[in-house]
């Protein structure tokens, strides 16, 4: 059996981990924005799977990947509009509303898939990995980090964008203000409702993009494609302490640990009888990491509280 610590294997594991992390990252970045504004969206998984179907169907029928990404984005946006209407305007309880959205997305995508597609045919073309000129020719490092598809680059580029958005823009300050103390923000003339609606729309469209990333990487759709991925993304937001960098760390941790486990299985280092036990690793490591992190971070104070002006 070959060793794990050969350079080419490590390169492959890192690249694989980054690919696996991409949908988690997109979804958890979006959810981070939403939660910072005080809105919990447990419907991420449903949004993702429905957007994934939309992207798949567009790519399958029209073979236009950017249109597929755009359609997934629109589906995310549309669900965001519905979710904003329910939770911000109608003050519905966020936890349960999210579960409603999740169930709807799960069932509706499956329904459309069975009726419109049926046979799980792969899409005609997938997003090709692109080497970044210069960087991708760095030995080893280039293959690990700079030979991915555009969705992956985009997801990681979104991290500084979201940091900038939350920390340096007026909108970001408003988001944080309405997430911590909506009454005070309101008295300063910030529209709590509008800020939250925009935050929800951003978060939900990001979940849509995450669904597209999943489909354009795998090239296929099937019922419950996300397999609970959206819930893990919500967990990653908590793990990341409501910070974009934290979300990135959590997503990468989840993706890379998964990739390492697969690699160790492929090499036979992990015996087949323990294969299932090894599959626990990402979840166990996340919980352990959380035990060390917990207590040091604080959630947005107004998370899940609907705003009523007094």
């Amino acid at each position: 059996m070959s060793q794990f610590f050969t350079l080419s294997v490590i390169v492959s594991v890192v690249a694989s981990g980054i690919r696996l992390a991409t949908p988690y990252l997109l979804a958890s970045l979006g959810e981070t924005i939403g939660q910072r504004s005080g809105v919990l969206n447990l419907g991420v998984d449903g949004t993702m799977v429905l957007a994934a179907f939309a992207a798949y169907y567009t790519a399958l029928k029209l073979d236009n990947l950017w249109l597929a990404v755009f359609v997934a984005f629109l589906v995310g946006l549309l669900i965001g509009v519905i979710y904003a209407l329910i939770t911000v305007s109608l003050h519905a309880a966020q936890g349960i509303s999210g579960i409603g959205i999740f169930l709807f997305g799960l069932g509706f995508s499956d329904l459309l898939f069975q009726v419109w597609v049926g046979t799980p045919l792969p899409i005609p073309s997938k997003l090709p990995p692109l080497g970044i000129p210069g960087l991708s020719s760095i030995p080893q490092l280039g293959d690990a980090l700079f030979r991915h598809n555009l969705m992956t680059y985009g997801a990681f580029l979104l991290v500084p964008v979201v940091i900038f958005l939350l920390q340096k823009t007026t909108f970001g300050m408003n988001v944080r203000a309405v997430g911590e103390n909506p009454q005070a923000a309101d008295s300063l003339g910030v529209s709590v409702e509008r800020t939250r609606v925009v935050a929800i729309l951003l978060g939900s469209s990001a979940a849509g993009l995450a669904g597209a990333a999943l489909v354009l990487q795998g090239g296929i759709f099937q019922a419950n494609l996300t397999n609970g991925l959206g819930f893990i993304a919500v967990a990653i937001v908590y793990f990341g302490a409501w910070r974009p960098l934290g979300a990135m760390a959590g997503s990468l941790l989840y993706g890379v640990v998964n990739a390492i486990v697969l690699q160790l299985k492929a090499q036979g280092t992990i015996p087949r009888s323990a294969s299932d036990l090894a599959a626990m690793a990402p979840a166990v490591i996340t919980i352990l990491a959380l035990v060390f992190l917990a207590g040091r971070v604080k959630a947005p104070a107004a998370l899940t509280k609907p705003f009523t002006r007094h």
Partner: peptide, 12 residues
Amino acid sequence: GDVALAAETATA
């Protein structure tokens, strides 16, 4: 059900 995991297994 996990298509992505199957894909990464093939990559591994």
